[in-house]
């Protein structure tokens, strides 16, 4: 199934993959128990799927449920495999392909947001410029002294990437990103 990534060396996976890879966002509802994240990650590495972003956190404390959001790129067949392989993991309750779901709901794509902390150090012109741009991007200053700022920025991935690339020449020191949190529009739950 992963023939498009690397030849597996097996006689029987020789068909060249012609389908185009797509990027999808999956929401996985799991029991919050030890090892569950390792199972999910192990599945991706063991079967040669790729992970572009992964976030996880307990969402329902009483029910001990966590929600894992995974962004992955694969051909449609492999995406179907990823979904059914995830569903096979015992503590997995549900897997929803948010990208497919949003199309069904008539939307362009699911809502996706990321938070990043960005440390920039510098003085003079650069410092003024950094602050001015942060303002334009609606980034908050959450820590500062005379030599540095730490900005907190939330938004779409593209916005964060853009902000980071602008900060780079202005004295970028450190970046920390949360990965993507995602949900579909409308009143229905996942």
């Amino acid at each position: 199934m992963n023939a498009q990534h690397q030849p597996t060396g097996s006689a029987y996976f020789m068909t060249a993959e012609t389908a185009r890879p797509e990027t999808h966002t999956l929401s996985v509802l799991v029991d919050n128990e030890p090892g569950v994240l390792a199972r999910v990650i192990g599945l991706f590495s063991g079967r040669g799927y790729n992970i572009e972003s992964l976030t996880v956190s307990e969402t329902e404390h009483e029910a001990h449920l966590s929600r894992i959001t995974i962004v992955t790129t694969a051909t449609p067949n492999v995406l179907e495999q990823i979904k059914s392989q995830l569903e096979r993991i015992v503590p997995v309750h549900r897997v929803v392909d948010l990208t497919v779901r949003s199309a069904e709901l008539g939307h362009d794509k699911p809502l996706e947001r990321e938070l990043a902390l960005i440390k920039v150090a510098g003085s003079g012109e650069n410092r003024v410029e950094a602050l001015r741009l942060a303002d334009a991007f609606r980034a908050q200053v959450i820590d500062a002294n005379t030599e540095h700022f730490i900005f907190e920025i939330t938004g779409r991935v593209s916005k964060i990437e853009q902000f980071i690339s602008i900060m780079r020449p202005l004295g970028l020191v450190e970046i920390c990103r949360t990965g993507i949190a995602a949900m579909n529009r409308g009143s229905q739950g996942m």
């Binding site: 495999q81 059914s84 569903e87």
Partner: peptide
């Protein structure tokens, strides 16, 4: 019985 076996190798 295993959904991941269906359409894995052959459509």
């Amino acid at each position: 019985i295993d959904p991941s076996s269906i359409n894995k190798i052959v459509r």
